[in-house]
Structure formats: C-alpha cells, structure tokens
C-alpha cells in the first residue's frame, strides 16, 4: 500500500470515530443531525476506482450502523452515494476537465463547484437514510424537515472543514 492509501485509511477511522463518538450525540432542535462521515466518500480523490469507492462506502456505512444499531441503513445510503459520485463528477466537469490526480477541495475547483458537487449527493444520502428509517411516508413532512435540517447542518460542517484544513499537497 502506498502512502496515500495509508493516509486514507487513517482518515477512514478518523471520520468514523468523529461520527460515532461526537456527532452521534448532537441533534439541533431535535431535527437537524450531522452525518459528516459521508464527506469521506465525497472527498476521495477524483480518479478513485468505483469498486473501491463502493467497498469503502459499504465498510464505513456498516461501521456507523453498528454504533447506531441500524443494521444496513447507513451502509445502504452510503453505497448509493459512492456509486453515483463518479457519474456526478463526470456530469459537472468544469471547462478543461480535472487535473490528473486532483483532490476534491474548494481550493482546487472553487466554492461554487464544490457546492454543486456536494449538496445533491448529501441531500440524496439524507433522503434515503431518513425515509428508509421511517419505513414509509406516513410522517412525510416531519421527515422532510429532518432531511433539510440535517442537510444544512452537515453542509455547514463540511464547508467549514474545507476552510479549516490547509490546502493539501497532492498525495
């Protein structure tokens, strides 16, 4: 395994622990939750192999599930995002394409691009997560409120982290 692989492996555990030890206990107004762990999948380098992406997504989601007692729920939503991620990246390729080995950061592609990239995928993740958890649409508007509230919360943290971490050298 090369250096970037090990770095990503450490990041995997960092995201997981942050999620299950800290963010699991946070709920704003009882409706907004933070599922920051999904950023790990979204921020992997652009040319990551789709199979590897999905496998990482499954392992991450499954690990989160163990702590949330929600077998398969987070894994389901995360694998979906991991699968669609590369297609979405191709769809919104900026003029001139991505540089080879480019990272997914605000620094590399600008804030506007970053938001266009992350918001729909995080929204989809939360949409699937909350509706599968509610097992139906009986509480439709309340569930929608939770989804939008969590989307805003998660996005805030994801963008904040983009500005907190110094632009990394290419791995």
């Amino acid at each position: 395994m090369n250096r970037s692989g090990i770095a990503q492996l450490l990041l995997f555990f960092a995201y997981l622990l942050l999620q299950v030890l800290v963010l699991r206990n946070v709920a704003l107004f009882n409706t907004a939750f933070c599922f920051f762990y999904i950023a790990f999948i979204l921020l992997l380098p652009i040319e990551t192999n789709p199979l590897l992406l999905m496998l990482a997504g499954f392992l991450l989601g499954f690990s989160v599930d163990i702590f949330y007692n929600s077998m398969g729920l987070h894994a389901f939503a995360t694998v979906l995002v991991a699968y669609l991620r590369n297609y979405w990246l191709n769809t919104i390729t900026p003029q001139g394409g991505y540089e080879s080995g480019a990272a997914v950061t605000v620094a590399a592609n600008g804030l506007q691009w970053f938001l266009v990239y992350t918001i729909p995928l995080i929204f989809l993740h939360h949409l699937v997560l909350f509706f599968v958890e509610a097992a139906g649409v009986t509480l439709f508007w309340y569930t929608m409120l939770k989804i939008v509230g969590s989307l805003v919360f998660t996005m805030l943290v994801v963008v904040l982290f983009q500005f907190l971490t110094p632009p990394r050298r290419r791995l």
């Binding site: 077998m71 398969g72 729920l73 894994a75 599968v132």
Partner: peptide, 27 residues
C-alpha cells in the same frame, strides 16, 4: 457490485426489523 451491495444492505435492514434476534453487529 453496486446492485450486490445494495441488496445486501436491504436484506440487513429487513432482517434487523424482525423483532428480537440474536445479533452481533450492533452496539
């Protein structure tokens, strides 16, 4: 692969909803 993983997850979700089972993959 996507299909396989999602079906696996869906199965886990359904299985977990069955009341009172012996499980190891929880807290």
């Amino acid at each position: 692969t996507f299909l396989f993983l999602e079906l696996l997850c869906a199965w886990l979700v359904v299985e977990n909803n069955q009341y009172q089972s012996t499980q190891y993959f929880n807290s």
